[in-house]
Amino acid sequence: MPTELIQLLLNGLSVGSMYALFALGYTLVFSVLGVINFSHGAVFTLGAYFTFLLIGGNVGSNGLLAGFQLPFALPFWLALVLAGLGSALVALVIERVAFQPLRQRGADPLLALITSLGAGVILVNLIQLLMGAESHAIPTSSLGNLPAALNIGGAMVRTVQVLLLAIAAALVVALTAWIEGSRSGKALQAVSEDPITAQLLGINSSRMIQVAFGLGGFLAGIAGGLVGLSVSIAGPYFGIGYGLKGLGVLVLGGLGSVPGAVLGGLIIGLAEACVPADFSGYKDAVSYGFLFLMLLIRPQGLLGRALPNKV
């Protein structure tokens, strides 16, 4: 295989694995509630900022917290896990504020789309208010003494990209094993099938919905920290872009399907890597192009199931 191809493939896969990680939480919430959680991109952003602060990053010269820096600097891995947990906590709060009241009232699920969007807008703008709109970078030196690049089959690949791929793969395997193999994972599947019947069978549906939100928030936070490490944190709004692109990932793979989110993420990552340099400005449109195409030919996505129209 020519080295350019290996390079392209690895670039695409590492970007795609981040899309997949991001889309996993997105799709988990969709599978249990049947609604898009628009605050997911904001939680992802939050994970990136948490990670940045915990490794001892300085806020910089803008925002109300200008010049703020934690008195300690954690190693990257610890910071990443804590950031994931912090994001999970925030996702749970969002569930409590923006989703639960509507669910208890039996309101139109489309309303949750609107309230979660509101929660996301508040979160992103709070970050901007506190930390300013500038971009930050998580230095790769926070990983310790790792070589900057690895030689894989003659192609030089950034170590960070290989790590991203490995972490994403490990998390996907763990999540799938949990969903398919454990009692609580089976309960989650039952709730996504039908929350009321699941409740009748003795499953605490509300609790499982919270589990989905918490897990989704954790995965989003981890993805945010990792993207911050491999690319940069391009200001408080960068997660919104991910949230929008992630819609393409979800629809491509199939809304609510966990393996679909992984497949969709990898496909879109690879497709973006294949966009020629002359048209790089159009890279952002790749995901939306797939989205439209899927809506046209197969709305349930590659791995989703078509739902009958229920009365």
Binding site: L110, L244, Y282, Y288, F292, L295
Partner: peptide
């Protein structure tokens, strides 16, 4: 095309439309 689908797909498709138009105008 899009209105045949359930509500959530319309919201998603229209967001994608706005973004595609933005990317095209930008380029």
């Amino acid at each position: 095309v899009v209105l045949r689908l359930r509500g959530i797909y319309l919201a998603i498709a229209t967001i994608a439309l706005v973004e595609i138009l933005r990317v095209i105008t930008l380029n």
